[in-house]
Simulated assay, not measured.
Amino acid sequence: MIDMWTRIERKQFSPIYLLYGIESFLINGTKQKLLKNMLTEEELDFNFASYDLEEVPIDVAIEDAETLPFMGERRLIFLHNPFFLTSEKAKSKVEHDISKLEAYLQEPVPYSTIVFVAPYEKLDERKKVTKLLKRTADVLEAKKFSEQEIKAWIRHRAEANQVEILDDAVEMLLTLSGTNLMMLASEIDKLALYSNGCIDKNTVEILASKSLEQNIFSLVDKVMNRKIDEALRIYYDLLKQNEEPIKILSILAGQYRLLYQTKELMRRGYGQQQIATYLKIHPFRIKLAAGQAKMFSEEELNKIMMWIADADYQMKTSGLAKSMIIEMLLFKIHGSK
């Protein structure tokens, strides 16, 4: 992905791009880079087009691509939802001339760039058109990053802001803000403004925002380490931010469920990467959960999950204040350690 973005920034354009996967931040980021680097604002009205292939036949888009650019050097065309690249049944009644597309892919015109935007986790590799497209296009698979990939991306984002980010600051940022790329991008941009050319761990600790999930992770960590005062401080801060108690309880339940699942899978001999794949959770979250899970027995986690279920029932049936129910739950978990 970084290599593709670098080529685009250097104005080394390909005639065909294929952007597929479920990480929308990467796909949207690539689209924005193409728009910014390929066309001026004046050229957008004449040389840019966007089609939804669930509504428009591919023939129309190809004819557009074969039209010479007006008042510029290149045409840029986005083709969204190319469902014919997947094994899914068509939701649309639009008929596509796939043979015409295959012919174009083998001989694209030099003055147009077509970008296939496919928000699908998998493409059907058995189809001739999919094989041909992947062979002729500049391909971005927008999948969830591994821990090393996300750290490389963070450094690249910092460099784009003309600052350096130290290794321990990268670790701290992931711990505090999670692995959502949109949130990380916002945090890095903010940190760059307040740094003096270098983002260090201390800057991240002071300025980085925490996601709700990371706040809950920290809350659990404080309870486990018998720091109930700090855990309650986090909880009260969440209430001041107008987070709903029932939502906090739901994420708290998810965190303890993750600890239980991680502990059980580790007991069966699974590695952290295997657990991440099995649970479809980012490996960095599994790395953090594995550290916390060691502090509990399975019996303790079962007991806590029962207490959380009981708290959920009380929220829905009793007249007690929902915020107080969670507060009592935290004291109960703290007292069990």
Rank of each mutant, 00 (worst) to 15 (best):
Q292G: 10
E41K: 12
S318G: 09
K280V: 09
T179Y: 02
K91V: 14
R285H: 03
F70C: 07
K210C: 03
A309L: 14
K127L: 04
E88I: 12
K122L: 06
E73Y: 00
R7S: 11
S318Y: 01
V170Y: 02
D45Q: 05
F78Y: 09
M4H: 08
G178E: 11
I286Y: 03
S14M: 01
E41Q: 10
K100L: 11
F48Q: 08
K303E: 15
Y256P: 07
M172F: 06
M224C: 13
D310L: 08
K227A: 13
D52Q: 04
D45W: 05
I27R: 05
D59M: 05
A311L: 05
E164M: 15
F78L: 14
M182Y: 15
Y236D: 08
L173S: 12
T30K: 01
I286G: 03
E141W: 14
L279W: 09
L193C: 06
I246M: 07
E102A: 12
E187A: 02
Q261I: 01
E243L: 09
I304Q: 04
G178V: 05
V60N: 10
D200I: 10
Y17I: 09
D64T: 14
K337M: 13
I246P: 07
S186A: 14
L252R: 01
E298V: 14
K100N: 12
I304S: 00
E159G: 12
K36I: 07
E73K: 03
A152P: 04
L140T: 04
S87D: 13
L238Y: 08
I216M: 00
L181N: 12
L181K: 08
T130Y: 07
M172D: 05
A185R: 01
D52Y: 00
E147Y: 01
N196F: 02
K100S: 15
E327C: 05
V56P: 13
Q273K: 15
F331S: 08
M224A: 08
Q273H: 11
Y104Q: 03
P108K: 11
A142E: 10
E205P: 00
I16H: 05
V60M: 08
G291C: 09
P15C: 03
G197R: 03
D221M: 03
Q261A: 10
N28H: 15
L219G: 01
T113V: 13
I62M: 04
Q292E: 14
P110E: 03
A158P: 04
L35H: 01
D59I: 11
V204G: 10
E171R: 11
